[in-house]
């Protein structure tokens, strides 16, 4: 395991989020019926921050929820550690809302597929959009993001690590090369 490059630091990361917030508002023509839903773990923190950015821009707060997709994954048996199932915390009705799903890294698209299934079980949103901090390619499903912080071409033996102040103590994004 070796850190190959730092892609974002604290400042560039927060600028990316601010730009995404503007884009979300532009596309949805304001905050009406707009809700953010972050995918655990790091998507949840990013959704909260995007919510704060939108609040700063529009002076209006919008609902922010957290989605746990563990029960909807298609690769549960491939994960040796057996991830802890955590709660979905969406305390608003998503029916007829415009939902922006938020995640840290878009890779195969399988997480987003699971999140869409999970979301459908909670109600019928009017639209679902996708915002990610990093798009690293290698899609295995027909999924694309509506808002992207940064596109980073990567190799399959690399991983992208998003570290955030809340769980990790600092804001940065790095490419890690795995030992082959």
């Amino acid at each position: 395991m070796r850190e190959k490059a730092k892609i974002l630091d604290k400042d560039t990361l927060s600028r990316s989020l601010m730009r995404i917030a503007h884009e979300i508002l532009e596309k949805n023509k304001g905050t009406k019926d707009l809700c953010l839903v972050g995918i655990r773990n790091r998507g949840a923190y990013l959704a909260k921050r995007l919510g704060a950015c939108i609040q700063k821009i529009e002076n209006e707060s919008i609902p922010v929820g957290i989605l746990d997709i563990t029960l909807y994954r298609d690769d549960l048996t491939l994960i040796a550690s057996g991830p802890l199932v955590r709660k979905t915390e969406i305390d608003f009705d998503i029916t007829d809302k415009n939902i922006v799903l938020v995640d840290d890294v878009l890779y195969t698209g399988r997480t987003v597929r699971a999140a869409l299934d999970a979301l459908m079980d909670l109600g019928r949103a009017r639209s679902v959009q996708l915002a990610v901090l990093i798009d690293r390619g290698h899609r295995e499903l027909p999924v694309r993001a509506d808002y992207v912080g940064k596109n980073i071409p990567t190799a399959k033996n690399e991983t992208v690590e998003v570290r955030l102040e809340e769980p990790d103590g600092k804001d940065e994004v790095a490419i890690i090369e795995k030992d082959s």
Binding site: D68, T70, Y72, K87, T88, D121, L122, G123
Partner: peptide, 23 residues
């Protein structure tokens, strides 16, 4: 503790309109 923590998350499922997950 792990069973109890996992159960806590599952409790939310029964409060939904669609009380089902595909796990």
């Amino acid at each position: 503790g792990l069973i109890l923590a996992t159960a806590e998350s599952f409790k939310e499922v029964s409060s939904r309109e669609i009380k089902k997950v595909p796990a």
